[in-house]
């Protein structure tokens, strides 16, 4: 198996290429979440289909604005044609700005924030009812926790003890208008979520080894798990790191050259 760190770095290059090429998109959150996606799709997830044509493990990128990260990952595991990555956000392409169910490998459209966990609950519940194996992974942004529906959904996750769900919070601390604690006072995420009855785990969400270990712990729990994955927004590109302004904009020619050379130097 290829080294996951190496894959994640290659996917970072894809993300930068895609967003530069599209002239718009969300680099900050795509770069923060890519290690989680790499571990899921290249290590943890069973991507085969069951007898009814449903993928055994599912993943919902609820923070759908990080679509470039998901598309690049799907291409890297062969679900999506790599040539399509060039068409991100393009009129004559299929890769919509946010994940669409029409795209191979996407289990549900997402991107309007707050909705992914409810959908994941429904999928996990269906698995329980039908005694089907497999996990439903759902990735939330930290700013996304400001959506009330997330907390409605957490109560449902707990009520039905959906231990076949693993939630990630991509905790990079920043949203469009600034810090998550300034914009909405979203303090003490871990206390809040564990008070909803979930098994709460924390890890460095940009560390491949820690992510793998934490997912193993989550799978051992008899309660649904939420992993608070501490990440760096813009991770891997020095001038984007921890800068809220890189939430949703493309790169100039100079920035593109700089970002690429930084990432390529790590190959």
């Amino acid at each position: 198996m290829k080294n996951l760190n190496k894959i994640a770095n290659e996917l970072r290059i894809d993300i930068i290429d895609m967003i530069y090429n599209a002239k718009s998109g969300h680099p900050g959150g795509s770069l923060s979440v890519i290690d989680i996606l790499t571990v899921l799709y290249h290590k943890e997830m069973n991507l085969s289909l069951d007898s009814s044509g449903n993928r055994v493990d599912k993943c919902i990128l609820s923070k759908g604005h990080a679509a470039p990260a998901l598309y690049a990952t799907l291409a890297s595991v062969g679900i999506l044609d790599k040539d399509l990555l060039k068409t991100l956000r393009k009129y004559d392409g299929v890769l919509e700005g946010h994940p669409s169910i029409k795209i191979p490998g996407i289990d549900v459209s997402s991107g309007s924030l707050g909705q992914g966990l409810s959908i994941a609950n429904g999928m996990a519940l269906a698995k329980k009812i039908d005694s089907k194996e497999g996990y439903v992974y759902v990735i939330l942004g930290d700013g996304e926790l400001e959506e009330g529906q997330v907390w409605e959904a957490l109560m449902t996750t707990n009520k039905y003890n959906l231990d076949n769900i693993i939630i990630f919070v991509d905790y990079n601390g920043l949203q469009i208008d600034g810090s998550i604690n300034d914009v909405k006072k979203l303090n003490d995420i871990d206390k809040k979520i564990s008070s909803f009855g979930l098994n709460l785990l924390k890890c460095n969400g940009n560390n491949i080894e820690e992510l793998q270990e934490t997912i193993q712990l989550a799978k051992k729990s008899n309660k649904p798990t939420c992993i608070i994955a501490k990440t760096v927004k813009g991770k891997g590109v020095s001038f984007m790191e921890n800068e809220a302004s890189w939430h949703g904009k493309s790169l100039t020619d100079d920035e593109y050259i700089k970002a690429k050379s930084e990432l390529e130097s790590k190959i």
Binding site: V108, S118, M123, D130, M155
Partner: peptide, 26 residues
């Protein structure tokens, strides 16, 4: 009783959960 799910006073969650189950073939 095992096939009825009360999602509580959370209509947004109701629709999302129902859709998730439907997408899984129910």
């Amino acid at each position: 009783p095992n096939r009825h799910f009360d999602i509580g006073i959370s209509e947004q969650d109701l629709v999302g959960t129902a859709c998730g189950a439907a997408l899984s073939g129910k």
